[in-house]
């Protein structure tokens, strides 16, 4: 059986907000290690890989690996019944036909209990090869969200060019064109806002802005985001949390 108690229930609410528009149904794979999820969107253009490590929960108990098939829209609806400061406990027994959720307020004088019906989801698990990326950009997650949203006014896609000087996000469309360049600035006072670039080779890649904007729904989970790129391989957008991560992979656009 699974028992996982999360002191900051708001984290789970934010995680659901960050994935529920990209994927509808997914298995939460529970094991000793924690709770993981991997799923592609319907069009197989983007993939979400989530890990909530066991040490983020107190206590965390999972005797036997379990796959909890969840409709994410339903789960996010139930999570809306939890207060932002509530402690959330997830429980499932080995038959895994329901997921029990308990929300306790901080005064511990209001306890609400919900049960969500689970479903059988036959999803294939994909092997994600270890990749050494040609360019890795670390930047403010709020800045990345702003750039994606701003450029979406101009075009459906963005060209990302990374050199050792900086990273340029450019978009061209019917009404005109726009570009935002962030210079590498490791010396800024505010570490959280620094743009850092690790570069083996310059890269120039095109991606759908619709998906990137969707990924930025994870912004409340982390102040930093990393963009890992190599020519003609999927972009990796990673938000690191205290005990885990949310990674998005996006297939590039090719051709002129």
């Amino acid at each position: 059986m699974l028992e996982a108690r999360l002191q900051t229930g708001a984290l789970l609410k934010k995680v659901l907000e960050a994935i529920k528009e990209l994927i509808t149904d997914a298995n939460f794979d529970c094991s000793d290690n924690g709770i993981a999820l991997q799923a592609m969107d319907n069009s197989h253009v983007a993939l979400v890989a989530l890990l909530l490590r066991h040490d983020g929960f107190e206590p965390y108990r999972c005797d036997r690996s379990l796959a909890l098939g969840v409709n994410l829209v339903s789960l996010s609806k139930v999570l809306r019944c939890a207060g932002n400061d509530d402690i959330i406990t997830l429980k499932a027994d080995d038959t895994a036909d329901v997921l029990s959720l308990t929300f306790e307020n901080t005064d511990n004088d209001r306890i609400s209990e919900y049960e969500l019906k689970l479903m059988d989801i036959d999803s294939e698990h994909l092997g994600i090869p270890d990749t050494t990326y040609e360019a890795v950009v670390q930047m403010s997650s709020a800045e990345f969200a702003r750039i994606c949203k701003d450029l979406q006014v101009l075009s459906d896609s963005v060209q990302i060019d990374v050199t050792k000087e900086g990273v340029k996000f450019g978009a061209k469309g019917e009404l005109g064109s726009g570009a935002v360049t962030l210079k590498q600035n490791g010396n800024v006072d505010k570490e959280e806002e620094a743009t850092l670039i690790e570069l083996q080779q310059n890269v120039s890649l095109n991606f759908s802005l619709k998906y990137l904007v969707n990924f930025t729904k994870a912004t409340p989970l982390a102040s930093r985001v990393s963009l890992s790129m190599s020519s003609e391989v999927p972009l990796l957008v990673e938000y690191k949390m205290e005990a885990g991560y949310i990674r998005y992979y996006l297939a590039p656009k090719i051709g002129e």
């Binding site: 993939l47 994909l126 090719i254 051709g255």
Partner: peptide, 14 residues
Amino acid sequence: QQSQTTLDSFFDPT
């Protein structure tokens, strides 16, 4: 015109 690729050719089912 650019075309959108998919992830199928990059990631293998395990």
